[in-house]
Amino acid sequence: MAEDRIVPKLAALARLRLEPGEADRLERDLSSILHHVERLQSLDMQGVDAALWTAGGEERLRPDEPGESLAVEDGLGCAAARDGRYLIVPGMREEA
């Protein structure tokens, strides 16, 4: 059923244009992968701390001292469109 499809909503969130055949395939792939990882739901993991890292001290913080910046030509040299020092991006239709 079309309303059960998850790919269109995800593709919109992830800003991915998909061809119709591609979307069908991904729908199937996602479904089988998600089915596979369902196994995790059966484990009792109550009370397990999911924290990824143990908290560190302030010794790994950066001192507030300025360093070198990039020239525009280096930082934005691969940009599709520039105007002088500015990056140019497409306009937003709704706000035009």
Binding site: A14, R15, R17, C78, G91, R93
Partner: peptide, 22 residues
Amino acid sequence: GMRYGPRAEGDDLLESYKSSRG
């Protein structure tokens, strides 16, 4: 597709994002 990489020129920003990444 904004700061680097090929940018598909869609009608507007949203189209450009989707096409560039798609």
